[in-house]
Design a protein around this nucleic acid. Sequence first.
DNA 1: CACCAATGGATTGTCGACATTACACAAAGC
DNA 2: GCTTTGTGTAATGTCGACAATCCATTGGTG
Lengths: 230, 230
Amino acid sequence: MSVLNSATSPMPDDIGPIENVPLRVQVADRLRAAILSGRLRPGTGLVETALAEQMNVSRAPIREAIQILENDGLVETIAYKGKRVKPLTAREVAETYSLREVFEVMAVHRVLANGAPLDALHEQCAAMNAAADANDFAALTAADEAFHHALIRLADHDLLRASWKSLYLRIHQIMSLRHRDNANLHDIAGNHPPIVQALEDRDTDRAIKLIADHTRALAAFDPATIVQDP
Amino acid sequence: MSVLNSATSPMPDDIGPIENVPLRVQVADRLRAAILSGRLRPGTGLVETALAEQMNVSRAPIREAIQILENDGLVETIAYKGKRVKPLTAREVAETYSLREVFEVMAVHRVLANGAPLDALHEQCAAMNAAADANDFAALTAADEAFHHALIRLADHDLLRASWKSLYLRIHQIMSLRHRDNANLHDIAGNHPPIVQALEDRDTDRAIKLIADHTRALAAFDPATIVQDP
DNA sequence: CACCAATGGATTGTCGACATTACACAAAGC
DNA sequence: GCTTTGTGTAATGTCGACAATCCATTGGTG
């Protein structure tokens, strides 16, 4: 975060490979970030012409970007009428978490089956503890995602990883819309080491029970905290 | 199938809601059908301008249609270079079937949990037997898909259903590319009633074992039967 | 002969304009 | 007064043209 950080410097005097990112991807990334952060709430209308003017591009990349978000399941289109951020129902939230549970249980099965080393998981546990000690909620969240992502990657299943990532987008969104839980950061961090331990012990049943319980605990939410816009 | 059937009559004297299908959807449906039927093999290049000319539409709907297929996982794009039907690797095939197994096991769990009536499953079993008796491979395949789709629907989980349908697209493609198995049609049809019976008996373990074995049996394939085009 | 630059073709990326649709609201007719 | 018809507006759907990019090939040059 130093002001001398050349990566974020306004003066790009360091030369390096410049990336050619299509406009649709830039637009999609911006809109996705806005949705996942909760700045664009579910139900918000997305008007192509307005976005095109705001971002100073034509409608074509806007359209394609919105279609990308549609594939992410974050936006829905009603023909000739408009597009909007997909409303979030309590049912969808529940389904999202239950599917996540199935994915992670599958990952546990595969990790135990292929006997992959668990170094990445230990690392993220350490990162979570550090974040909890520093009372840094954002860092804890990041480490938590990194932990679960590492678990999925260890499963060595590209299709599972892709499905999980798509699902996790919505979980991001849900967590942003949710009121900040006053949960103890150390509690959250403490949930993970036992999972890793069960994996080290190659105790399938215990690992699965722990990961399922952990996922289910996250699913508990107050529907009233998810507000819709007409 | 009467020649007097007004639905297929060239004279549309019966009034009803006429559907307004956007071009991109028509294009996507046609291309998807071509891919799933195996007429467009994995690796085949898709050139926007050529398709636009062939179908007599502009490039815009073609682009959007291809993006739809990309979301279906059937097509991939390499920026500024081209688009092509996604190559099918043996690994992808294996992953597809293993994920399907997880989905169907999840469905079995939920069906048993919510105690839904199993009429739809019995119906499709009957349809499969009829198709096997008539030696009608296409009808058997259709009934088989209908059976599994019914199972997924009984799970009452929209997200699972959507994920399963997306996955099943690739299974369609795989089955088309595969050499026609000389499997006994009655064997295929006979695999399903025991699953329904286990569900009726509310025997979770047996139902799960049967559905998992069934899915796994379908996954067995000869990689040489999947041919790539450069 | 080997190597590097430029150049040409093929393909996607982006743009601005026009067509089509759906909804809302006003106007006309019974 | 109520239904029906017309019209306007806002949004997406579609189009044709131009720009940017990558890749192969070709030509020059040591």
